[in-house]
Design a protein around this nucleic acid. Structure first.
Lengths: 116, 116
DNA sequence: ATATTATGACGTATATTTGCGACATACTTC
DNA sequence: GAAGTATGTCGCAAATATACGTCATAATAT
């Protein structure tokens, strides 16, 4: 799952990177947006919406599920996938904290001017 | 840089995925955090802080620079890297819009209960 | 000029991701 | 139970990412 050197970073950095990796493919971004638009849906619907094979979509779903960002509930023959909004909210807060920290100081001017 | 099927998604989805990919490695998260802590620094300092070789750190720096998230200015013998806070701010807004959209509806209960 | 230092570029080995076809499983219907 | 439907799993090929040693380059100092 990870390269050897990953362990050498802080848990916080690893966690942020892990979630970022989950969003690092447009298909997974699209899946989350699609699940957000419909409150309830089944896996088959998702594959039909994306320009990818059902198998590939299933894999992306498993990746999101592995991080618990989405959940799937078996409902007879179909599977009902939905967003884990609670976790997404926590992740949003993590990202916000990171970006606020990063944008706190104005290290660069508008063009290319470093304040070095 | 990207797989063939990437082009089939919206520009918005691709842009979000691209930035997410830049944050998808703890070393790059650490680099941004380090640059945020010091207002000014040189590449050598960064490599000294991370559990990676100078060569590898340089590569991560180039990746962040390719997205313009950081900027490097040659200052004699050393290179002064600093954050592009303006772009980081815009990226933060993009992520916030995405997460707000995703957390708008309460699709899942606290445990495992889908509202299917 | 020569040695030294700071960095980027290149090549390369290994690990991981992506994408998909083919098969397996489970439930429903007839 | 046989047939059809909805999904997941496995294995494979190709594309990318990761990590680092070695060399090239440019500026500084001696």
């Amino acid at each position: 799952m990870t390269y050897a050197k990953t362990a050498a970073f802080t848990q916080e950095q690893q966690q942020l990177a892990r979630v970022a990796k989950a969003l690092a493919h447009p298909a997974r971004v699209a899946i989350i947006q699609f699940l957000a638009s419909k409150q309830t849906c089944i896996s088959g619907d998702i594959a039909a919406e994306l320009p990818l094979s059902r198998t590939t979509v299933s894999q992306h779903l498993q990746e999101l599920k592995a991080l618990d960002l989405i959940r799937g509930e078996i409902d007879g023959l179909t599977v009902c996938y939905c967003l884990n909004t609670e976790l997404l909210h926590r992740v949003h807060q993590q990202f916000t904290a990171f970006f606020l920290e990063a944008t706190a100081g104005s290290a660069c001017g508008p063009d290319d001017a470093c304040a070095c």
